[in-house]
Structure formats: structure tokens, C-alpha cells
Design a protein around this nucleic acid. Structure first.
Length: 468
RNA sequence: GGCGGCUUAGCCAAGGGGUUAAGGCGACGGUCUGCAAAACCGUUAUUCUCCGGUUCGAAUCCGGAAGCCGCCUCCA
């Protein structure tokens, strides 16, 4: 079975076939950097990250382009508000984004182009639209003539007539039709600008993605991914601009993720109704957040609740406990011929190949964890050694498959040996107390370590410790 | 007004015409343990919002109702 992906354009799951054998080009709509990134931005990024990891697991080479919209009305507004240069605002939020992205183990995109760095390509694109009679300039602004593009509305399933009826936004009087959208905006006093054939100005919001995606990935992209709120008008407009110029299909598979909600309502930068990702990462380790995000299918809304993060935390512990094996033992790296684990691999792959069904894939991981634990219980060996017996097929596989979801990547592991050495010392002394039946004192040690965030587990042959 | 989505156990969440309706969290009982922890075993949905229909057979398909959410405007 190959990979099947739900395509917004056709409203169906389709067999995915890259344009070029063995290579996948993905363009991910990134954030407009007028505000801090929130958990919703990370959801979109994690979805793209898992796609990348799965494609790679299947031997495909992925190029992922993710833009930053650094020049746009909102960013300018924010800069004015704070009395700063727009580049400063954009830079700060970009950094915050990348910091959170790195912590969550989201792979760095191949490139992170910025709108402001591709003005030339943008201008060329607008010029060809103008030459083809699909764009018109009015007083320094340039608009796209929507009526001239057949198929407008095919992505969002909207009819032009309905849109007209529903238009409730004040229409720019310069537009010939309310549906037309800006490709280029003339600069007002005090705004950043670039020279152009239409005078000083800046690009409209939609054109940058067409220009940059085609610049890096070619005229037809395998996959374009973004939040469902971008379907209309953003992606609809991207299709219009791009296809009007090239005459080729712009994107083969459109992927849209649903959002993260807060109290049932969509998070949004513009309303301030959101939880910044950095605030969450102060309280939860990255894998907990990943588990939280992947615990529901990407096309369903996900409610942000503390309780769910807590559940994810406990659930992650379960996986990590199954994973605890003695890494010094070389049997860890052996491959297994265990048919049962092959079954798990197949189920895991089937889940992800069915439109990236991560909740189902996680279910397989939990079942696998159980297998590992059962073997451990049967052999009656302490964690490390029993882990080793099933590790090649069990714990090792769990680690590998978890890795496809971006879990257990060993980020932020302490490199300092002092703590482990001190723990060995403490455990050793406590063992002596236990052997002499001094349980009051040994329990006190355990309890006080607990207060420091360290839990001890006494097994038959040895005591293990971990951070809570 | 136009268009789309969702409703599965105490909570979260897969499934999507026919074997026992995945999995996680929680709860209860048991095993193990000096006591714990971790882990294991057992119990926790005769039923999938409601009402009709199609079918030998529906949680799954069709029609309708109710509730919730979204897009049509900046948003991941």
C-alpha cells in the first residue's frame, strides 16, 4: 500500500505519487511574524515534520520550504505601534519560532525564505500577470483580475456569485471588482518600500508564496500544506496567480490541518486568543507537547487544555518506561526476525499511510510498549536486561517507529556526568540501609529525592532512577 | 444568507456496511514489592446525539432534527 493523502482540491484521499521519482517537494505556509508563535503554528509544523519523517523513512528525499511573511500590513502596524523597524519585530518573532521549533524537534526546513528577500521574483511575476492582461495597476497599487481566471474557487469550493453576495468587507474603491486582490501595494508615508515599475511599494500577501514556492520548487509542487484558515482566500489566490502565469497546475496535493482551539474557539494572533508555545514549553517537555499534538488526526480540531497535556505526560511516561534499556549492551542494535514486531511495523505504516493517521499509529506504539513490558514481566528480569531480550524487536523498534513521529530523539539530554554519578552513590548507600532493614531512612531518601523531581524504582537486582 | 465540518465509555480518541467497537488517561479489584514505584492480569460502550429509511445486516450509506464549530475578512 502506498501513501494516501487527503487532497483539499479534490476533497478525496488520493494515492500520493511524487512528480519526480524518489523526491518530494513540500511548501509549508509559515507564519506572519507580527506576533509570537503559538501552539497552533506548531501543530502545522509538526504535521509537516511527520510527513517529512515518514517520506524519508520510506526512502524519499524531501525538500521542505517554509516561508516567513515578514512584510505585510500587520507587521507594519505592529512595528508602528511599538515604534520599531518592521525588521526588528519580524526578526524577534522568527527567532522565537525557530527556538520553539528546534525544541520540539521539528526539523529545520531546507530553506526559510522571507518575502522581503524575494521582491525581484515577486515583481517579475506581477509583470507577467500584467502582460497577460490578468492584472491592472491603479495609482501605484496592482490588482489581480479574478474574473479573468477560470476556475477561481475550485479549492475552497466557492462560487464567485456567492462570494459577491457574501462580501461584507469594505471594498477598496480602486478595485474594479470586489473580489480582485492586491498583488502590489503602493507605500504610504512612513512605510517600508521597494522600487517597482508601479512606483514605491511592497508586495501583497498572496503573491509572495507563489513567487517563492515556484522559485525553490518549480512551477508545480507536490504538496502545499497550511492551516485550513488559509484555504480561502490565500491559497485560492495563490492558485490563480500561479496558474495564470504558468498555465500548469500549481499544486498536486493540497494539505490543510485544522486548528488548535482554546475554550472551543480557534486560536488567533489577531484577537490575542492564543497560548504562546514558549509558555507551554516552560512547563512540559517537548515530547509531551508532540504527543498532545499527534494524539488527534491533523484534520480534526484540537482543544488546548491543561488536562490533556497532563494525560499526554503520563502516556509519554508509559512509552519511555518501556523504552528504558541498557544502552551499553550491544544487542540493542541487532535486528530482529520476530514476526510479532513485524506485525507492529506493518500496522504502524498502514496507519501513517492512511492520510497520516497519527492517533492510530500511536495506538500501535502503545501496543508495542505493552509487548515489551509483558516480555519483561515474563522473564522476570529487571528493566535493563529484559529490555535487551526483546529490545531488538521491541524497545528498539519502539524507538525507531517513535522516531518517525519525531519522538524520543534524545534532545536536551544532560551531558554532565556528575548527576548520574551522585545518583549511583546515593542508591548504593541506600541499598546498604535497606539490607540492614533500615527502611525509615531509605524511604526518607526516596521521598526527599521525589521532592527534587527524581523517582526511584527498586527492582529485583538493582534500583533505577529517573526524572519525573 | 452561501458553503463545509463535528457529535463513539467518566475524560481524550481511532474505526467507518458483517469476526470480541483500537489505543491513551482515569477508576475499581488482584499479582509482584519490606513499603512504594514501574509492570502485568481482570473489570469499566450489548452500543456509537436523536428520528426515520436502504439492506439479510448500519456506529458506518441516505434523508431529516438538535447541539457545537469553522470558512465566506488578517489568521497555522
Amino acid at each position: 500500500m502506498g501513501i494516501r493523502i487527503y487532497n483539499t482540491l479534490t476533497a478525496k484521499k488520493e494515492d500520493f505519487q511524487p512528480l519526480q521519482e524518489g523526491k518530494v517537494g513540500i511548501y509549508a505556509c509559515g507564519m506572519t511574524v507580527q506576533e509570537k508563535p503559538h501552539i497552533g503554528h506548531m501543530r502545522a509544523a509538526v504535521v509537516a515534520d511527520v510527513m517529512w519523517r515518514y517520506f524519508e523513512y520510506k526512502g524519499l528525499k524531501v525538500t521542505l520550504i517554509q516561508n516567513f511573511t515578514d512584510i505585510d500590513d500587520r507587521v507594519i502596524e505592529k512595528a508602528k505601534e511599538k515604534g520599531k523597524d518592521y525588521r526588528e519585530i519580524a526578526g524577534q518573532n522568527e527567532e522565537a519560532y525557530l527556538r520553539a521549533s528546534d525544541r520540539l524537534g521539528i526539523r529545520r526546513a531546507t530553506f526559510y525564505p522571507r518575502a522581503s528577500q524575494h521582491i525581484e521574483e515577486i515583481i517579475r511575476l506581477i509583470e507577467s500577470l500584467e502582460a497577460k492582461g490578468l492584472a491592472y495597476a491603479v495609482d501605484g497599487d496592482v490588482f489581480f483580475k479574478v474574473a479573468k481566471f477560470k476556475g477561481y474557487g475550485k479549492l475552497s469550493k466557492k462560487k464567485i456569485e456567492d462570494l459577491r453576495a457574501g462580501a461584507r468587507v469594505k471594498v477598496d474603491p480602486k478595485k474594479r471588482s470586489p473580489l480582485d486582490f492586491a498583488l502590489w501595494k503602493g507605500a504610504k508615508e512612513g512605510e517600508p518600500w521597494w522600487e517597482s515599475p508601479w512606483g514605491r511599494g511592497r508586495p501583497g500577501w498572496h503573491i509572495e508564496c507563489s513567487a517563492m514556492s515556484m522559485h525553490y520548487l518549480g512551477e508545480t509542487l507536490d504538496i502545499h500544506i497550511g492551516g485550513a484558515d488559509l484555504i480561502f482566500p490565500h491559497h485560492e489566490n495563490e492558485i490563480a496567480q500561479s496558474e495564470a502565469v504558468t498555465g500548469k497546475p500549481f499544486v498536486r496535493t493540497w494539505v490543510h490541518n485544522e486548528w488548535v482551539t482554546l475554550a472551543g474557539k480557534k486560536m488567533s494572533k489577531s484577537t490575542g486568543h492564543f497560548v504562546p508555545i514558549e509558555e507551554i514549553l516552560e512547563r512540559y517537555e517537548p515530547d509531551v507537547v508532540r504527543l498532545f499534538l499527534l494524539g488527534i488526526h491533523y484534520r480534526s480540531p484540537l482543544e488546548f487544555e491543561e488536562e490533556r497535556l497532563e494525560k499526554s505526560k503520563t502516556a509519554l511516561e508509559r512509552l519511555k518506561n518501556a523504552l528504558r534499556v541498557d544502552e551499553s549492551n550491544e544487542s540493542m542494535s541487532r535486528d530482529s526476525k520476530d514476526s510479532k514486531t513485524h506485525g507492529h511495523t506493518r500496522l504502524f505504516e498502514e496507519a501513517l499511510e492512511d492520510d497520516f493517521n497519527t492517533p492510530k499509529a500511536l495506538g500501535v506504539l502503545f501496543e508495542l510498549a505493552k509487548e515489551v513490558n509483558i516480555k519483561r514481566a515474563q522473564t522476570g528480569l529487571p528493566t535493563g536486561q529484559a529490555g535487551m531480550i526483546v529490545a531488538p524487536g521491541g524497545a528498539k523498534l519502539l524507538h525507531t517507529l517513535g522516531g518517525v513521529l519525531g519522538l524520543f530523539q534524545g534532545r536536551e539530554e544532560p551531558t554532565d556526568h556528575l548527576v548520574p554519578d551522585l545518583m549511583d552513590l546515593l542508591i548504593n548507600l541506600r541499598d546498604q540501609l535497606r539490607q540492614s532493614n533500615n527502611f525509615d531512612l531509605s524511604d526518607e531518601i526516596r521521598s526527599r529525592l521525589g521532592n527534587l523531581g527524581i523517582s526511584l524504582e527498586d527492582e529485583e537486582e538493582k534500583t533505577t532512577w529517573k526524572r519525573k
